[in-house]
Nucleic acid binder design. Sequence first.
DNA 1: TTCTCGTCCC
Length: 679
Amino acid sequence: MNLKKHTIGPIRRVGLVDLFRGRPGRPPWDLLALTKMVAQPTATPQAIVGWSRLKSNIICSLYQGRSGCASHILAIKLMRAYAARGKPDVTRKVFDKIPERNNVICNVMIRSYVNNHFYKDAILMYKSTLACGVTPDHYTLPCVLKACSSMDNLRFGVQIHCPAVKKGLDLTLFTGNGLIAMYGKCGNLVEARRVFDEMPQRDIVSWNSMVAGYAQNGRFDEALEVCKEMDSLGVKPDSGTMASLAPAVTNTSAENVMFVKKIFSDMAKDELVAWNVMIAMYANNSMSSEAIGLYTQMEAHGIEPDAITIASVLPACGDLSAVSLGKRIHEYIEIKKLRPNLSVENALIDMYAKCGCLQDARKVFDEMQIKDVISWTSMMSAYGRSGKGEQAVDLFSKMQDLGIIPDSIAFVSILSACSHAGLLEEGRNYYKLMIEEYKIVPRLEHSTCMVDILGRAGKVDEANIHIKQMSMEPNDRVWGALLSACHVYNNMDIGVIAADRLFQLAPQQSGYYVLLSNIYAKAGRWKDVTLFRSIMKGRGVKKIPAVSNVELDDHVHTFLAGDRSHPQMEEIYLELDILLGKMKEAGYVPKTDTALHDVEEEEKENHLVVHSEKLAIVFAIINSEPRVPIRVTKNLRVCEDCHIAIKFISKITERQIIVRDTNRYHHFENGVCSCGDYW
DNA sequence: TTCTCGTCCC
């Protein structure tokens, strides 16, 4: 519709109102059309402005000397239009001008507040309507209950329950569902279940609310149980069921993932939410390739991704260093104008950071109109992982200057940045600041960072003391950090203590056996190394196979150590041989003392040559244009020999090589690594 | 009218 046809000059305005007056019982059709247009998400700013100019007089005129159904219809439309555009304050202005209010108008006002997350105002409005003698009905209560659950306000929720029972509304579908959701969200699952059980009729939302209640409170088995109960009663789960279940299936068993996958596969694939939940579930269960695969399928299905899809799939791109897909998604965000959106932008920063594209991450960060503590944290950890501790420290003070309060995770980020950059004093200060200024109780993650900071700086004894002074029981990561320090600084005494604890806490983690074996290997105690290998075998511990990923043309290629399965393998090994020759000419000496096995030097050298990251890098060299940076992601820490070797490779081939291991980033360029050989 | 999905650290 063209706004020009509805000129909104003063003359026309009087005309409209006159038209209305002349036809009691019917609102002027073109005004209604205008209202509808303003309510559309596609309404232009001009339309809104035009409408605003109308609104100041229109309501007064409408109600002049009359009150009636027609005036109410128009007023309600106007209120809804403003609420839909996120302006509950303007809605309220319209509301205040209405002389006689019935419960429909009050309901609309309350809902405007709730839908715009103004929960306190919604509850205040509810109270004042009660005071005015307007009685709440089966439209009012679900809405007010939603406000209670969003605020975690169990006390007021219970106060709603009483009048609901008096009127028998608790047995109606919508109010009953609202009660279940409220009790569930507020953690009173017994009461939620009671309401659920007493409802004479239930629908899919009742079931979903019940599932959500258990899932949100960490009672995952019960959430799954309710799903199975539905199934046995022939109630078909829908996309809402999947969404409700989502909190229950992050970091969960393969079995649970399969369960949700089954629900998804039995369902019509036309609902965005279902896809979003599936993608998020894959991403949250370290199934990044599956997440990306499903995203591609979704596009093929013609379903348009929204901001939530994007925020769910980007971490998977980051995880696999799939930067070309990440960039494509970035373009999509710009095309669909999904920015500004905090979650999307924060996810973008993280994706670029994990792909080693610091500048791109920083660009997104700088362009953001509003930044929250997560944005700052993401950017700090981006610098941290790349060994740019000073920049992280710099950001931390800027964040403080802006009055943004760092939370527990922000401190994990900055501490971890300090550890990667070897900033011992800064790390100590931040730890102190966190406890003394911000009154944050240190979590295991903070201690892990502190042990890491102390340990990497060679203060192995002090790190050991830190562990002894912890108020919480140290976990395997804390001991693992200490063991790594012992490995770097050849501290066998403390290393054995740490390893001893680790073998109790995480007997299946091969990495720790390898570290301790390597400490023995460095000391030439091959008997102990052999002993450990037999202990590992005896306990059924398997070495996690080293895997390196490298992206080429939107496709992720995976290499195992000693891999010969890749179709281009012959070419890769040939090229590797040539490269090795050049490297040795340039002064490369394989560093063999960290190899686990007690074998002859030459044989050890062969083991090292075929480490997965070397294969991945050579593959990328063969298949990509000169000077294009190579990005490799590894599932374990990069070993000392590979680190030395890649420095040579970066110089010989004049390539930037960016390797991400489990701990951090290594930007290799012209024979130098960004970590300064400190990792 | 009611339910439900996303971002940072280890």
